[in-house]
Design a protein around this nucleic acid. Structure first.
Lengths: 329, 329
DNA sequence: CCGAGGAATGTTTACGTAAACATCACCCGT
DNA sequence: ACGGGTGATGTTTACGTAAACATTCCTCGG
């Protein structure tokens, strides 16, 4: 900065003013400084800037190894929104979802160059975390139910599940089976609960849910079971990957979809339109979730911490060819 | 730091020494300092640290919106490897793959708190970039052919494609069709070239390649075309998603896989084991690519810039149920 | 024609850390 | 017993920036 100032014939302070787009600088001076900057290929040192200003213009994102598609899409949206606001995004990957690892990530956080934090993580790990987040750092949590302690942004899992079940009931199915996600996933819990509640609300008795682990393989295994149930004409799968495995199992067992069995997925991954048959599913707006996370966290940076609370992003049913009225019998 | 020093009854420098795990500190003193740190909830200020040390312990990753699965898995591996080395990872998302956007990302880079950069990007955009990378910052490029100008780490696309084609020829197929990726993708080009070279090397005349855009949908459209070719008994798809669409098209047209047509994919995405039928494909070791990217870039941080050059990570054929000898005729 | 007021720019200082150098106490061999 | 280490700790300083305050110079109203 000193070199630039010398070359432009001004003080370092004036260089700083130009560099930050400050008002009170003559057009003439500004031009000279900019020329000098270009000449010397000057780049402001962000460490010094951060030290002086007390902010990093960086957001930290804590997440498990970029595993599930939803987390990835959310992260993508977060990165894009943050960039638009002039913030960089630093990744804090947690390799294994154990308590130790999570605690480690949280404590590393304290000495990380980060103004705010977005956590994409299952509730149960957050609950048990012994290291609390550094006070004074705004936090928004996605994919969790910690609404009473943190600001939470999430997809309206319950609404989506309800729409899926209602869609199948509206087609005339007498009940809807559920291929659930893992028990330790809060999203899976909420989808399962909403499925159950919707059936109960319609005066029906929910059949026992079959549990998978989100993977297509687990969906296949579950599908082999469901194919044995003669009265199973409609299945709501908790995600598209499991629906894919389910389709394969049904196909292998000679149960035609959608003629004999209807299937609804959840997520609307791009491939689901190319499944056999194309999958009716619940679309999640990950971009909106990411956008709201960034907005929430930046609001926290700019003013005193907003209270806890949950914002839900609505879903949308995408009807394709895997659902139809039940067979005439 | 001053407060901690006062509470522990030592100098600030000693606090610094403890904080950095320096050797020459008595066990007694260290304990006192650590106690004081805990008591005051002290966290080193990373901005001051970076300013003083001249390094940020942060890696920048430039990539397109986390779009393709390969890029995501590579990023994941990068983040994990970096964390192990004590480095954070900052994302520099480029929303639209236009020249302007790329240039923008590169120039923002200059003032970013980053010691080194990993670029995950298609060659052609890198070629046309008018803004060059800041000198002095080590760079490693993944998924590109810029081996003459940058250090490049990539999957051995050619070797994988060759294995796929040979696998089909070994099964007895008289030729292998190719469902290629988009023309502007270097990975797609290399896979297509290796496919062509392998056929030519075996004394065969390659049929015209059918081109898709990586998506399952484009694979489906291409599949409708290929299903019309009576002599088409073996297809090498440039990625698993397109193979998925291809399978669907073949199924719709009544061409049984693998009895009538064999299909090999590329990537080995987790879902491919659950396709109908489970897909024979080429496994890519993204974790290794990410690991090598980090290793390469950190080597650059520690010693003068290593020359350009390309490191290839081998692939592995995963045989499943989508390939078989050609029909008896 | 003078002084108040304001715009443009310069000077000083502090942000929190760690390298470099300085100091001090103590141990050992002769 | 004494001098030369050696290991532990303290003091000074600089990293690059921007806020706060100081200075200069010009304009404009009375």
């Amino acid at each position: 900065m000193g070199d630039v100032a010398r070359l432009a014939g001004v003080s370092a302070q004036t260089v700083s003013r130009v560099s930050n787009g400050f008002a009170g600088v003559t057009e003439e001076t500004r031009r000279q400084v900019l020329d000098a900057m270009r000449e010397l290929d000057y780049r402001p040192n962000s460490a010094a800037r951060a030290l002086r200003r007390g902010e990093f213009r960086t957001l930290g994102v804590i997440t498990f190894s970029l595993s599930t598609l939803g987390n990835i899409r959310t992260l993508d949206a977060i990165a894009t929104s943050a960039a638009r606001e002039g913030y960089a995004v630093t990744l804090l990957p947690v390799a294994v979802p154990t308590q130790d690892e999570v605690n480690g990530a949280f404590s590393r956080l304290g000495e990380l160059a980060v103004d705010a934090v977005i956590v994409i993580m299952e509730t149960h790990l957050l609950d048990a975390a012994t290291v609390s987040l550094p006070p004074g750092i705004p936090v928004v949590v996605a994919d969790s139910d910690a609404g009473d302690r943190y600001t939470v942004v999430d997809t309206d899992q319950a609404g989506g599940a309800r729409d899926a079940v209602r869609h199948l009931l509206d087609l005339g199915h007498t009940t809807v089976w559920h291929l659930a996600g893992p028990e330790d996933s809060f999203a899976a819990q909420r989808r399962a609960n909403a499925w159950r509640a919707t059936l109960t609300g319609a005066g029906l008795v929910p059949p026992p849910p079959v549990r998978g682990d989100w993977s297509a393989e687990s969906g296949y295994r579950a599908g082999l079971l469901l194919a044995e149930q003669p009265d199973c004409t409609a299945v709501f799968a908790a995600n598209d990957q499991m629906a894919l495995g389910l389709l394969r199992a049904l196909h292998e067992r000679g149960r035609r979809v959608p003629d004999e069995v209807s299937v609804v997925g959840f997520d609307d991954i791009p491939e689901s339109a190319s499944f056999l048959p194309p999958l009716t599913t619940i679309h999640q707006d990950f971009a909106e979730v990411g956008r709201l996370c960034v907005a929430g966290v930046l609001a926290g940076v700019r003013r005193p911490t907003p209270g806890p609370g949950t914002t839900l992003v609505p879903t949308r049913l995408v009807p394709r060819n895997s659902t139809a009225p039940p067979p005439a019998h």
